[in-house]
Design a binder for these strands. Sequence first.
DNA 1: GGATCCGTTGTAGCT
DNA 2: AAGCTACAACGGATC
Length: 525
Amino acid sequence: MASIVWFRKCLRLHDNESLVRACKLGDGVVPIFILDPHFVDTKRIGVNQFSFFLQGLTDLDQQLRKLGSQLVVLRGKPEKVFEGIFKGKHPFKAKTLLFEHDTTPYAVKRDETIEKLAKRHGIAVETFSGHTLINIKEVSGSKGFKCPTTNGMVEKMLQKVKIREPLPVPRLPKFKVKGYAMFTLKELGYKEQPKHFAKGGEREGLRNLKAVCGNKKYVRRFNKTKTSCTTGHKAGRVSTTGMSPYLSSGFVSIRTVYHAVKRVLASGSHTRAPESLLGQLYFREMFYMLAATTKNFDSAKNRYCLDVPWDKKAAFQNAWATGKTGYPFIDALMRQLKETGWIHHLGRHALACFLTRGDLWQHWTFGRDVFGKLLIDADGSLNNGNWQALAGVAPWSSQWFRIYSPVPDDKSALNVGMDGAWLKTFVPEVKNMPAKYMYCPWTAPKDVQEKAKCVIGKDYPAPIVDHAKARDANLNKFKKALSSRGSKRKAEDKSTKKSKAQGSKRKVEGKAPRATSLLKKLRMA
DNA sequence: GGATCCGTTGTAGCT
DNA sequence: AAGCTACAACGGATC
């Protein structure tokens, strides 16, 4: 009669509360992983993403074996698999089942089913919070809970709770069993070779965290809005920390990252949230809380989402998703994403803005699914939250009329490298273009196009839309969607309570412009 | 209850 | 060259 530790996320030995507790119970520990058919879908999950995950799972098994244990890999729907375990159909018997909370919609349902099943079989269940800094299950159930929608709100929330230090790796009881071998990409139906830019696994993730935090100046001065968008074409050279895939999979504990960063910040002055490294963690918490507590967070029907009449145009969606829009910057980003499974956050902004409110006027859920499939750090909570932000439909969106240009220059907020080194890697069609035409090859004179072997319409597509025209038309459509919601709300107010005396005044004449000092953003503690 | 402030990250043009 | 302003102008929180 043993303690079953069910690995789902939290694919690690450090700061694994289920594992520590199981060892303490003293009944023996059986680490299991269940290959759920729900997560075997080559259409929904790309080869890079699954390969990165499989590397981490293999790393976990290898580490367990070094300590005299092993990972038991089971296959099938979790309720069926557990039924088998609880009925004694395996060479190990369950007394207690332990796992980490997962607040995402599929997991919540799955875990409720499993808990009920375990109780029916007289198996004790113990669960722990660990994928987020805040215990979302606990906090969202407490009275007066208000889900944060800004970075500052999360910062305030975190100031009120104590985040415990990560737990060390426990001493594991010996465990050996035959069979239950690891699966392969090939048997799951993946035909292409994975080519992702980072290696998966706890050891690799912790090594990366150590390297990042070893550069104290980098951590203390980190300012997200200043990091370069055009990195990642050379192995291991990215302007951000590269920690996201290790966090989405749970190869590295969020608490471990939080405390490691805090220790560095304590050594001197540093940037502040939201642009700082901690600010990035606050956004993660925010999107996890929003996703966990908002009904239909993954669709436009959720309470926050503005209803916008997006078009559905297959030609636009295909051009975007295959990197053939005729805008080299946009196409390079999409091709980098497809090839390597990773792009810089600002690149994600550019792609998302272009697909939705900026240029193509397509639904954000289409882009959400493409990112969800291709990114090695894909994370449903963050993906839905960020896509709504960039489509301009969420309260946490930046201002909707601020539209990124798909032809960046050296002043762009997207921090794009103008030397073209990154661009040429992913859009070789423009590699012989003079630098000034590289991001807008259609503006080059015909003879220049011919000389560069980049004739627009032949070697590389013409721009799918005229950005200036599309931008104007979309701004008007967006304005309309906002005002129709405004009138809907006014009508609701009237029907529910006392009517407001006057309609909302739109613009105040002669209002002083807002001072947006960069100093404010760079404030140091 | 009205004014003001705030919100991760726009762009063009000027000094 | 970096920093500022004009331009577009919303909803929600706060005082």
